[in-house]
Design a binder for these strands. Structure first.
Lengths: 358, 358
DNA sequence: GATTAGCACTCTCCACGCTAGAGTGCTAAC
DNA sequence: GTTAGCACTCTAGCGTGGAGAGTGCTAATC
């Protein structure tokens, strides 16, 4: 009866739903009433469980692949499982050590660190991992330097407070001396330090303009480059690792199932959209149809954001079938994000004292 | 009879081998004598062709998947086909335009250019593409600059003659003033300009040491970083694109066949080894067992090296089944490498005049 | 009234055998 | 030297049928 929909689940139904979900996550095979009765000590016969399972199906928590098969959790079932039923697994000491030590190695470089993060996450979770590189829009200018390479070639160097260094070679017509460049560097530093990148093209530009009116042409080019350097294009970088791990999952052993996923994992923009709006540092899950991307309506994505010095700047995540080991993977993703936050923050603190402008 | 081995092929055998290979490359199905007789006007009956094909098999150019199937070229057969038989296809005007225009767009950044190259190559050839980033070992120092970010934090900036900019943030104990840094920059520039990166850790280091003895600690750290920056680690970068395209090939439609390939495409080091020794700017092919990597003994790799200002610095390539469209793809790889060479050279010429050391 | 045993039914999976088709090698004729 | 013809071989595809797993329903039991 439809009236059973939306009724709160009683304890017994919860237990059965949990048992079915646990078992299915483990076995990837539809779970029958007999299996539940035998494998999980609920003190009930298979017939009773059969009835309860029929109810759970009617309420939308379970589904049947075909008429005489066992039950499988629906998206709703997984959602309930994640929110209320599963027993979150503690990270083992080995895992903690592995994550921490592996990541610590490559402290030196931001890009390496991100890359390594994706690798470890894939390796430990056994699912394809996706890491969005730190978003630079909210980063603050720390240092700007112009270096003259040749009469018409200038190197523009930007260091952000997140420890990120961006450089661009600028070609422009017209000469400019090293002294003038030094002067400009000083001016730019004074004006821009502490400003966030995304605020660049506001009033500030006009302000700068008056200072730099003498070098009008250069100014125009420089600003253009500045804006471009900080634009989305170069910042929407996405790192994927272990894409082939998805092949281990029986639901993707046929190429028709597997191909669209692989395609997704090769398209940075779609991956970006997939993760970009998740900004909680605790692990978040999107289950099946909760994902915006149609091609992964049979997948779940576990994400966790990371931060630099308290400012959320990026997201890491893993992709798997809806039959994912939520209880195991969620804490891993969360912890990995936390370690990444810590290391990035550490990285950004380097030389975070007063900066000489000489 | 074994005596037939290594006999030069007569014209008729060549024609038949070419027909079989052409047909198999197109259809992916073993080619029978009847097909050859019907589809290719050789003026011979299927029976005659049958006899010739038996000979070709005996000489090792053809193989039979099973007793009553058609013939398929062996690695040797493909090798002969590539070296002597195939009619190389001219690039269409559309292809030339496509490659050129697509690549021209992103002139600005070296990394973007490499990335884009991989994309285009994959897109046009319809095979997974692999691009090794420019090898920096042979690049020459053009400019070195030390920038003081904070009392104990220094930014080391290296610009090579290939237009590549590398930067490192160096932490070290001990203070150093901006003036000292400027002085050091001048010294370093004088000493290092024009030296190739790989020559860094030779006599030169001792030479430098005497100049920098005053800043011993800093010197040690700086040199360490210099060497590390130019070490293989950061230069063995490999870009892969369109890995999933391999799924379009019928020989890899089963996951067992496909999986090892995918794994290869995710392992940068193996890819590096696969391409690294190819250094001809004309398209080269490695067919099946000619490849060192065991897992791709049923694949071919077409490569072409690219250069910056006449110096070979990297390799691009595509991976496919041995049943690859050699005649179509080889010119594409070659042309793409040539365009890349041109653009990189262009990029490196920017501001290639005298450099002020002020 | 809730639980359970029993049973008929349904659906999938897989092994088996069969046929059609494609291609061969060999022999004998041209 | 070439070709027609034929017997033979091997694969791919299809339909059949039984085994196995699991259900829903009914009737008996607690």
């Amino acid at each position: 009866m439809a009236s059973k929909k939306n009724q709160p689940l009683d304890e017994r139904k919860k237990k059965i739903l949990k048992a079915v979900t646990d078992d299915y996550i483990l076995s990837a095979e539809p779970v029958g009433s007999r299996t539940v009765a035998k494998r999980y000590q609920l003190g009930l016969s298979s017939a009773t469980i059969r009835n309860e399972m029929a109810d759970l199906e009617e309420s939308g928590y379970l589904e049947q692949p075909h008429a005489s098969a066992g039950r499988v959790p629906s998206d709703l079932g997984y959602r309930y499982y994640v929110d209320a039923l599963m027993s979150v697994q503690q990270l083992s000491g080995g895992e903690v050590d592995l994550i921490y030590s592996q990541m610590d190695h490559h402290q030196q470089e931001l890009e390496m660190l991100i890359h390594k993060t994706a690798k470890i996450l894939g390796q430990i979770t056994k699912y394809p991992s996706i890491v969005l590189a730190p978003q630079m829009q909210t980063a603050l200018f720390r240092h700007i330097q112009l270096v003259r390479l040749a009469p018409k070639t200038i190197l523009l160097l930007i260091v952000t407070d997140t420890g990120y260094v961006e450089n661009k070679i600028i070609d422009f017509e017209g000469e400019i001396s090293s002294e003038e460049l030094d002067h400009l560097s000083v001016v730019l530093n004074k004006k821009l330090r502490g400003i966030s990148l995304k605020d660049l093209n506001t009033v500030l530009l006009n302000d700068l303009h008056s200072e730099m009116i003498l070098h009008d042409h250069f100014y125009n080019e420089a600003i253009k480059v500045l804006i471009k350097a900080m634009s989305k294009k170069s910042n929407e970088r996405v790192f994927v690792d272990g894409a082939t791990k998805i092949l281990e999952q029986p639901e993707f052993s046929e190429i028709q199932k597997f191909k669209p996923l692989m395609n997704l994992l090769e398209e940075e923009e779609r991956l970006y959209k997939l993760l970009a709006d998740n900004s909680k540092s605790s692990a978040q899950v999107k289950i099946g149809h909760e994902n915006s991307d149609e091609e992964i309506h049979d997948c779940s994505v576990i994400t966790s954001s990371y931060e630099i010095a308290g400012r959320t700047v990026g997201v890491i995540g893993v992709l798997g079938p809806t039959r994912m080991e939520y209880a195991r993977v969620m804490p891993i993703v969360e912890y990995t994000a936390a370690v990444l936050s810590e290391l990035l923050t550490q990285l950004s603190r380097r030389g975070h004292g007063r900066i000489d402008s000489g």
